[in-house]
Write a protein that binds this DNA or RNA. Structure first.
Lengths: 339, 339
DNA sequence: CTGTTAGCGCGTTCAT
DNA sequence: ATGAACGCGCTAACAG
């Protein structure tokens, strides 16, 4: 009953022809009659033939697979990017191996070893928080395995393809939006300064203030791990020192919500007393009050774009095109109330 | 500088021994001297050797890969299960190919074809909404590819391994909780009755009512697609007909939140006037008011359990053990206020 | 303990 | 247009 295990040899034997002809027929080669093609296809169907891609891949020295490394699958932003990657890979006929580094460099290295052993045709990666040097990544390029960074890249890598978000610009727009709404004293919840995204978000914050003639005040910027409790504590501390705060620009939405809850409990009206904007990391925007304006990072688009760029690199033999694509997040305004 | 492309033959030649000895050494076979093992390992490192798993897999007729099919990666529950699957697979040394059916039967079929072509060692699946017949799944079993369902299974399949949630029991506990809080008129937001999960949640609702001496009223059960707007409309309609509703049991949290928002706008206090419990599908619990009690489906545990069961099946040659594991979701109470 | 031989299933030369 | 032969890289069987 081994219905699915037929090989090209079996269908060749059944037809009294050679396996190489069968191979050609199945690959739709022009060097085989239409007649035999049909016969082969019919017999293949009858025997329930399925090409053994492992053998095919070995012969062609190509795995038809791309490796993907993210810090954590269960984080919404990354599962969105993976959905986009999967979509692009699917239409291009590629398989995808998903791996999570769990933010550990060691695990990232062992994953790359594994991907290499599996002879993936290319790699998409969003590096772990521990990743600064990148010899383990250069190894891929040395062996002609295309590599595309998305979201988090490795600045130690001089030449590389990457798909990034324009954090600076998005932050600039978000803070400008607050200012246009009338805010003058805007605090910024920042994250670990080792990560470039947080540096860029801080930069956009500064530039927006300066361009609108508002002086930058170091006291109004606080860094944390951006959990909900951090948001609460940060705004509590800050309000204690500066009672006239009227805006919050948070590097993520979880901390923003922590702050928002606290403020509401204290009787502040959002956005009338204090307006809040946060980068969107979780799909919560729909679930919370309509007072939090968020910056949508559209992970799906990033994933799709990165995967397409990678496939382009895979197909352009020998030509290593190192390109940087920068996508613009969109500001989703939910604080329509005029202050 | 093809540093990573060395084969066992090259390292054999460099050492003046045979490639099969190298192979054995690399596989840590007991039938090779410690001395030569060390020499081989040293030379392998020197040449930057990486085993070609494609060739190895072809020879061993094993891919060391398991296929995973989910309706949508970006849905939080599924990305959680995938994280759990990935974790279990990683420690067992398996690769994972993630695929999304997008709730389409056709796509599910084509994915299965592809997975078969890739000769995966086993398959984990949560079927699409369109999947009722399952010939395409039986095909796997006919070819000795172990299959484990998780969360959504296929009732048309007489014999199968599956890891499920005890929806009935969780619903029973949730509704009992509401009753113990004093609710007497509890509505139920249900979903498409074609899906077993919604049938079971409805059953748990009924049983809890009966066991507590509350008559079941068909009017209080409404089915929808359980979007946020559905929640709003459903509660609006119901309140119009039954002004004394004091509890809501929702088959998902999004609809629950829709209802909650509407109720608050109408001046109702949660949970004092109306208590709400919802199955948790999105990671929003932290972000919303502390008045919504949720049922956590712990996708991570389901994924881990399912993957381990699959690997067990893969390893137990010839023995097809069809087991059903049922995990209990946990009720996370956030409505501590006494009514 | 090690070498020899023989394939896994497929695609790609050569021929004809 | 088709067949014969070879090899991708590795491992399993059998010798010795």
């Amino acid at each position: 009953m081994k219905k699915g295990n037929a090989t090209i040899h079996e269908i060749a034997k059944a037809l009294g022809i050679d396996s190489s002809t069968v191979s050609r027929a199945l690959n739709n080669s022009d060097r085989v009659t239409q007649k035999t093609k049909e016969k082969v296809l019919a017999k293949a169907k009858e025997l329930g033939y399925r090409r053994n891609l492992i053998a095919s891949n070995l012969r062609r020295n190509k795995s038809n697979t791309i490796g993907v490394i993210v810090p954590r699958i269960s984080r919404h932003f990354f599962s969105s990017t993976i959905a986009g990657i999967e979509e692009a890979a699917f239409v291009a006929g590629y398989n995808v191996i998903i791996c999570q580094s769990m933010e550990k460099l060691d695990r990232e290295k062992s994953i790359l070893n594994n991907l290499w052993s599996n002879r993936v045709d290319g790699v998409l990666i969003s590096v772990s928080m521990e990743t600064v040097a990148c010899d383990h990544l250069k190894f891929l390029k040395d062996n002609n395995v295309p590599l595309v960074f998305f979201d988090r890249h490795c600045s130690a890598m001089e030449q590389s393809s990457k798909v990034l978000i324009d954090d600076t610009r998005a932050s600039y727009e978000a803070v400008s939006h607050l200012i246009e709404k009338g805010c003058r004293k805007i605090v910024h919840f920042s994250g670990p300064q080792s990560l470039e995204i947080y540096k860029n978000r801080l930069r956009g914050y500064k530039e927006a203030l300066e361009d609108h003639g508002i002086g930058f005040n170091d006291d109004l910027v606080v860094s944390s791990t951006l959990m909900e409790v951090d948001g609460k504590e940060m705004i509590q501390d800050l309000l204690h020192k500066h009672s006239d705060i009227d805006g919050v620009f948070s590097a993520n939405d979880v901390a923003a919500i922590g702050a928002m809850k606290y403020l509401k409990k204290k009787g502040k009206r959002i956005p009338d007393d204090i307006a809040i904007v946060g980068f969107s990391n979780e799909p919560i925007s729909e679930a919370i009050e309509p007072s939090l304006t968020t910056i949508d990072q559209s992970g799906f688009e990033i994933g799709r774009t990165a995967c397409n760029l990678l496939i382009e690199n895979i197909n352009s033999k020998e030509k290593v095109l190192d390109r940087t694509l920068i996508l613009n997040p969109t500001l989703i305004k939910r604080d329509s109330t005029n202050r």
